[in-house]
């Protein structure tokens, strides 16, 4: 059996994977797993491990038996819908009945929201994913960001500290169902864009998602939007299972 290198690349959602590796939480089944946070500069400060160009260069040393796992971006849904907007809005899902009382809320057509996500993803995250996918002979998948958190109290703990001055605590949170709808639309847009280049979008492991479609509290990081190392460990095992299944399919004997 070939040995596999698995390289996770991303932004803030890469940290739960890094911590899982550091804490030895994941069964890597002999695969060599590494993680990089792609460098970016914010307020004059460099955040991250290696630049995108350095990582692209490194991809040239990978082989077709290796796997690049993108966890790039992922928080557009939170930017759009974690905090209650000044103009409260909602989206109807295809199987959702018309509201009995639509007063005070603007219903935004789902395809318009989809187009906004698609436009943003095409101009940034998906460009980076495609650059990396084409940088070497390795296989590439993208993992969806963790689902939104259902526990308002957990999220609001963040608002009660340094964000009070930003007025976020007073704004409050968007309704939970809206947060989930935006996450789903983000994933639908990602799936559409990535499928054009045959890049698979992997959804969060089933055990990390509640019946109602939110992140299981056991996988909450201590903030509003991220998951913890236990979640990161499951992502590593998901990637290991994916590359091994590919190998088995390619070599059925």
């Amino acid at each position: 059996m070939a040995e596999h290198k698995i390289l996770f690349l991303g932004d803030s959602h890469s940290h739960c994977i890094r911590d899982a590796l550091a804490q030895g939480l994941a069964d890597t089944q002999g695969c060599t797993v590494s993680v990089d946070r792609i460098q970016s500069v914010k307020n004059g400060k460099v955040i991250g491990d290696r630049s995108l160009n350095e990582i692209i260069e490194a991809c040239k040393d990978l082989t077709p038996d290796d796997l690049l796992v993108s966890v790039i971006g992922g928080n557009q849904h939170s930017v759009t819908g974690l905090v209650q907007h000044d103009v409260p809005f909602d989206i109807l899902e295809p199987d959702e009945p018309a509201p009995t009382d639509a007063s005070g809320v603007t219903y935004v057509p789902r395809s318009s929201v989809f187009a906004t996500f698609e436009r943003g993803l095409r101009s940034n995250d998906c460009q980076r994913i495609l650059q990396l996918a084409k940088a070497g002979p390795q296989q590439t998948v993208h993992m969806a960001a963790p689902p939104p958190k259902e526990d308002d109290a957990h999220i609001m703990k963040r608002f009660e500290t340094k964000f009070i001055e930003m007025g976020l605590a007073e704004r409050g949170l968007s309704p939970k169902p809206l947060r989930r709808k935006l996450w789903r639309i983000q994933n639908d847009a990602l799936r559409k864009i990535l499928s054009e280049d045959d890049i698979e979008l992997l959804m969060p492991p089933a055990e990390t998602v509640t019946e109602s479609g939110f992140l299981e509290p056991a996988f909450y990081a201590n903030d509003a939007t991220h998951a913890n190392p236990a979640y990161g460990a499951l992502l590593i095992e998901q990637a290991v299972a994916w590359i091994k299944a590919r190998q088995s399919a390619a070599n059925p004997a």
Partner: peptide, 14 residues
Amino acid sequence: AARAFVEVECDEAA
């Protein structure tokens, strides 16, 4: 405001 919040969160994920 939401973007500022999420970006700080993402920076602090380190």
